[in-house]
Design a protein around this nucleic acid. Structure first.
Lengths: 350, 350
DNA sequence: TTGTACGCGTTATCAG
DNA sequence: CTGATAACGCGTACAA
C-alpha cells in the first residue's frame, strides 16, 4: 500500500471513528469469532472457576464467549444449544450437562465442534442404586460402555471421580479409619462415580461402608443428610463428603450434634473450592484443577476449530490436599467399634 | 397466510432443518439481541451471583449475554467495551468497573445504553487515606459530587456501602462493644465507603476506631492484616471486615492466635456469600441481595432499550443477618479496657 | 396473498 | 496495486 494512501485512510478512520462491524464480517466469513458456553449455574464458585479458565483462554485466542445457565434443566439446555447455533457460534462448550448429547443435534450431527466438561452422560434411573448395590467391577463395566456411547463424537474433559474417591478413602485408611460413610450427591454422574470409587477402595481394603447417605449437593442437603447419619447410634469415624460444600455442611452438622472434627469424626471433601482452606477446621479435600480444566476444554475446542478430526478425551486426576478436617482414628473406643463391626457384617452380607 | 401455504412452508422448514440466521438478521435490523457483560472475575461467587441474576433476566427478555472478565484491569476493560461495540451488542452492563467511565466512549458519548453495577467511579489516589483522616462529613460531600460527575449518563445499581457499614457498627454497638477495628479492603470504592460508614457510625456514638487495617480483599490479604491487628497488645473486641471472605480470614487468623470468636473477638462481614452460614462459627454479616441486584441491573438496561431517556439510579440497602460470629462484649475486663481507652484518646487526638 | 428488488457492512473475486 | 462488483441471509417496501 502506498504510504500516503495509508495515512489518508488512517486519518479517515480516526475522524469517522470507524470500527469494523463484526456482524457483517461474520455474515460473509461464516465465522463469528464467538463460542457458546453453557453452565449449570454461574453463581457457584466451582463452575465459575471453570468458566473463568475458558474465558481466559478464549480471550487469548481472540474469541468471545456467549454464556447461558441451564440450571440443570435438560430442555433449557437444548434450547440454549439451539440458540447458540442460530447465533452462528464457532463452537460450543457444555459443562455439567444433564441432557442426552445424542438428542442435541438432528440427523446430520453437530455442525460445530462441541466439547463437554464433566458431563459425560446422563445418569439413567437406577444407576445410583446400582452403584451402591452392584459389585463395583460389574457396575463399572456396565457404565463404561454407556459413557463411550453417549459421548461419541464429542471432545470431553472429565475429572477422574472414581480415582479421586479412591484417593480420599486411601487417605482415611492411612489415618487408621475403618468405619467410613459417604454423604451427599444425588443422581448425577460425578456422585455415582465417587460413590463407586468409595466402595471400590473400601472393598480392596476388605471393608464395607458404614452407610452411603445421598442428598442434594447443597449446604442444606448436606446438613440434613449428615444430621441423619451422625445422630444414628452407629456412627462412622470418618466421612467422605460428595463435595467441599457438602463437607462444610457435614462439619457444621457434626458441631451442632456436639461432635468435634477431626477428633470425633474426620471429614474430607472434593474440589478444593476457594474457602476450603479457610473454614474451621481447614478442609482436607481432593483438589480439582478447575481453572486449568477450563483452559484445557478451550484448548480442545481450539484444536477442533483448527481442523482436528478426532475428538479429544482427557481425564484429569485429583490431588490430595490434607488439611485439618481429617485426623487419626481414635485407638479403639471399645463400645463403638463393636457396634461398627456388627454393622459391617450386616452391610457386607446383603 | 393461506393455511395450505403455511403447511408447505413448515414442511420445507422441517426437511431442510432451516433456522433463521441471527447474524444476517442482526445486520439488517441493527440489533443483535445480545448484551455485553463485563465482570472483574467470574470465579468468585459474589460476581457470579450477580451474573446469574443478569443472565436470568436477560434470558427471560430473549437476550443473550456475551461475557468477559476484566480482572480489575482498566485497559482490558476498555478493550472489552470496544469489542462489545464492534460486536454490535444492544447494551452493556459493567460490574465492578475499575476504569474511568468518561474515557470509555469517544467524543459522541455511548452509542448503546450502559448500566453500571457497584462501580460508580474510580477511586482517586488519596481517597483511601482521606476516608480515614478527614471528617467523614467533609469527605462524603467531596466524594458525592465526584461520583455524580463520573457516572453521569449511565444507569447505576449500587449497594449502599456507607449505610451497610453503619448497620454493622450499630449491631456491634448494640452488643456493648466499644473497641472496634476495620480490616481489609484496598483502594476500591466499596472499601472506601465502608470505612467511611464505619467511622461515621462510630463518630455518632462518640467513639474512635481502634484501627483501620487495609489489605487486599482476599483470604490471604485478610489473614495477614488480621494477624497484624490481633497480635498487637491493644486489641479490639470486635472487627468489621471488608467482606465475608475477609471475615472468614479474620476468624481463622484469630483462631491461630488462640482467640475465640465471638468470645474474645466478634467479627462481622458483608455480602452474605453462600458459605457464610456454614463456616464455624456461622458468620454475622450485612446481606447484599446479589441475584436481585443483577436482575435490577438488567431491568435498567431493558428500560433504556425500551427508550427511557433518563438513566436509572438505584441504591440497594443491606440487611443485617446476625449469626454467631458476633456476641456481647465482655463486661469490662479491667486491664484491657484501660488500654483500649488510652488508645482511643490517642487515636482521636491525632 | 404472493413475489421481487434493494440494502445492511463486510470479504472475495476479478478486471483494469 | 487499485477499484469496481458480487455475494452472505435476512427484513422491508412495493408491485403484481
Amino acid at each position: 500500500v502506498r504510504p500516503e494512501t495509508r495515512l489518508r485512510v488512517e486519518e479517515a478512520v480516526r475522524v469517522l471513528e470507524y470500527r469494523p462491524d463484526h456482524i457483517a464480517r461474520a455474515l460473509v466469513t461464516r465465522s463469528s469469532d464467538t463460542i457458546g458456553l453453557l453452565l449449570p449455574s454461574s453463581g457457584d464458585s466451582y463452575w465459575g472457576e471453570i468458566a473463568a479458565g475458558i474465558e481466559e483462554r478464549a480471550s487469548e485466542a481472540g474469541l468471545s464467549v456467549l454464556f447461558a445457565n441451564a440450571h440443570g434443566n435438560a430442555d433449557r439446555e437444548m434450547a440454549m444449544i439451539e440458540l447458540f447455533r442460530a447465533k452462528r457460534v464457532d463452537g460450543i462448550i457444555i459443562a455439567g450437562a444433564t441432557g442426552e448429547p445424542g438428542t442435541w443435534f438432528g440427523r446430520r450431527g453437530p455442525d460445530v465442534p462441541v466439547v463437554l466438561v464433566n458431563s459425560d452422560a446422563r445418569v439413567r434411573p437406577g444407576d445410583l442404586e446400582a452403584a451402591q448395590v452392584l459389585t463395583p467391577e460389574v457396575f463399572l463395566a456396565s457404565i463404561a460402555g454407556q459413557m463411550d456411547a453417549t459421548v461419541a463424537g464429542f471432545s470431553h474433559i472429565a475429572f477422574d471421580d472414581v480415582g479421586a474417591a479412591r484417593l480420599a478413602v486411601q487417605h482415611l485408611l492411612d489415618l487408621g479409619h475403618e468405619a467410613l460413610a459417604f454423604v451427599g450427591g444425588e443422581a448425577i454422574r460425578p456422585a455415582v462415580l465417587r460413590i463407586l470409587g468409595f466402595r471400590l477402595a473400601l472393598l480392596q481394603a476388605g471393608l464395607s461402608p458404614v452407610r452411603v447417605e445421598t442428598s442434594a449437593q447443597t449446604l442444606e442437603g448436606g446438613r440434613l443428610a449428615a444430621t441423619e447419619l451422625l445422630s444414628n447410634r452407629v456412627r462412622p469415624t470418618a466421612v467422605v463428603a460428595y463435595s467441599d460444600v457438602v463437607a462444610i455442611a457435614v462439619i457444621r452438622a457434626a458441631h451442632v450434634l456436639g461432635l468435634r472434627t477431626p477428633e470425633d469424626v474426620s471429614v474430607i471433601g472434593f474440589d478444593d473450592i476457594d474457602v476450603a482452606a479457610f473454614v474451621e477446621p481447614p478442609l482436607s479435600t481432593i483438589r480439582q484443577p478447575k481453572r486449568s480444566m477450563g483452559r484445557q476444554a478451550m484448548d480442545a475446542l481450539l484444536e477442533a476449530l483448527a481442523g482436528a478430526s478426532q475428538p479429544r478425551r482427557l481425564t484429569i486426576e485429583g490431588e490430595l490436599v490434607a488439611r485439618s478436617s481429617t485426623g487419626p482414628a481414635k485407638t479403639s473406643p471399645v463400645g463403638a467399634t463393636t457396634n461398627v463391626a456388627d454393622r459391617h457384617r450386616w452391610e457386607g452380607s446383603r
